[in-house]
């Protein structure tokens, strides 16, 4: 098992280097010039040239690539042009927010997706199965930014102002304005409340996909001989389904962990904008338009690395669940 993980980790190294290379050239080959951000009337060509030299943009592309790669390997991601401070500091400020949001969305999506898909499969063709299919198809078809707006409208605005519900969820930011004056318990609650709507907006679409996949996988597994064996042993239906069938049905679904991470990250760009969530998605989006090369490259590189890590986690989960992979 340990050897398996080490082997997977080693094989991820060239992948990450490859990602760094592609990110660098993609950003540098794109049209636009970061100096344009500082352009102001009356600026002479000399000043612009000097600025280009300061940024190192006068060097040929391969020299810049090697310098960037060398610096990055030592943990130096350069200086953000738009934020006027080291890229690493910007990342430390914004990346955790995105990771928390993504992790919550992923967790919620898999938890509900797996449960719903399993129930649907076990009660195939029942009214519940059909009803869940319709609801899931609805969420699957709706774009997440529209869902986000509808969630704000119902669970935040109407819940508070129209229906007078005892509970409603904040529609923007990660904490309330009075956050600093709250007790520890209230702080936790405040953060959780702020997480609910953005998490739901991201998770609903994924839940629908995972449930769909889970249903199919489960339907296949509950027809297997070993499930009949489990029944013939006198086990209860809950044990048969959740112990014997579920673990087998999860094997193909784990693939989705790796597949959904990129979907999730691109989703965060919209969701963070709508919910004023100070995360990496929004930061990169802004940085792209300002041609803040160092920040775009570092941000993209981290997102891409997260995808590699997610696939690594999926690989390890495969081995945990399926002994046939473990011993290869």
């Amino acid at each position: 098992m340990t050897r398996y993980i080490i082997r997977r980790l080693l094989s991820a190294i060239p992948l990450v280097l490859g990602i760094a290379t592609i990110v660098f050239f993609a950003v540098n080959l794109a049209p636009g010039d970061p100096t344009l951000y500082f352009l102001s009337p009356g600026m002479t060509q000399d000043v612009i040239e000097q600025m280009r030299i300061n940024f190192g943009l006068d060097q040929p592309v391969h020299v810049r690539y090697l310098r960037w790669l060398g610096a990055m390997l030592t943990g130096d991601f350069g200086h953000s042009i738009s934020h006027s401070r080291p890229v690493l500091e910007v990342l430390v400020d914004f990346l955790p927010n995105t990771l928390i949001l993504s992790a919550c969305a992923l967790f919620v999506a898999f938890l509900f997706g797996i449960i719903i898909g399993t129930i649907q499969a076990v009660r195939q063709y029942s009214i519940m199965d059909s009803a869940m299919s319709v609801v899931l198809l609805f969420f699957y078809s709706m774009p997440s930014f529209w869902l986000a707006l509808m969630l704000i409208l119902t669970l935040s605005l109407f819940a508070r102002n129209v229906w007078d519900l005892p509970i409603w969820f904040p529609a923007s930011g990660i904490v309330s304005v009075d956050y600093d004056f709250l007790t520890f318990g209230e702080k936790v609650r405040d953060r959780v409340m702020h997480l609910v709507l953005p998490t739901l907006s991201l998770a609903l679409v994924l839940t629908a996909g995972i449930a769909r996949y889970m249903r199919g996988s489960m339907l296949e597994v509950i027809r297997q001989d070993y499930v009949r064996t489990a029944k013939a042993k006198g086990l209860s239906e809950a044990v048969v389904v959740f112990k014997h069938a579920l673990r087998n049905a999860l094997i193909p679904v784990i693939t989705l962990v790796g597949l959904y991470i990129p979907v999730l990250f691109s989703g965060t760009i919209f969701i963070e904008t709508i919910f004023a969530w100070p995360g990496m998605g929004r930061t990169i989006y802004d940085a792209i338009f300002i041609r803040d090369y160092p920040l775009v490259m570092a941000g993209t590189f981290f997102f891409a690395s997260m995808v590699v890590v997610a696939n690594l986690i999926a690989d390890v989960l495969y081995a945990v669940i399926d002994p046939r992979i473990r011993y290869e």
């Binding site: 297997q224 001989d225 070993y226 009949r228 064996t229 489990a230 013939a232 014997h244 673990r247 087998n248 669940i321 399926d322 002994p323 046939r324």
Partner: peptide, 13 residues
């Protein structure tokens, strides 16, 4: 059962 290859659950010892 007939099929010993598929009658045991592959993920448990």
């Amino acid at each position: 059962f007939q099929e010993p290859m598929s009658s045991l659950n592959p993920v448990y010892s």
